[in-house]
């Protein structure tokens, strides 16, 4: 799942080398913390958060197949 978010983010940003995903396993939920270059923040969030919402939708569906909940946190 980490790899999924990393791949998507890298395809969206201008500086793929600065994409970093950190996984925090919780009891109920796995939190995926995404960091990108400050100049790329807008690229992963999108207008009115649309890009971030799309990523979360895909993450949710992928999690459903694994019976596990995943949350995406985009860190500034």
């Amino acid at each position: 799942m980490k790899q999924l978010i990393e791949d998507i983010a890298k395809a969206l940003v201008d500086i793929p080398d600065e994409v970093n995903v950190h996984v925090v396993e919780g009891e109920q939920v796995t939190v995926l913390e995404l960091r990108v270059a400050p100049s790329d923040l807008g690229k992963v969030i999108g207008k009115q958060g649309r890009t971030a919402r799309s990523i979360r939708t895909i993450l949710g569906a992928a999690g459903m197949k694994l019976n596990r909940r995943f949350t995406l946190e985009i860190l500034e």
Partner: peptide, 12 residues
């Protein structure tokens, strides 16, 4: 999900 895939593909 279909529309999310579409949107992300367009952006990528």
């Amino acid at each position: 999900v279909l529309l999310a895939l579409e949107y992300l593909t367009m952006e990528a």
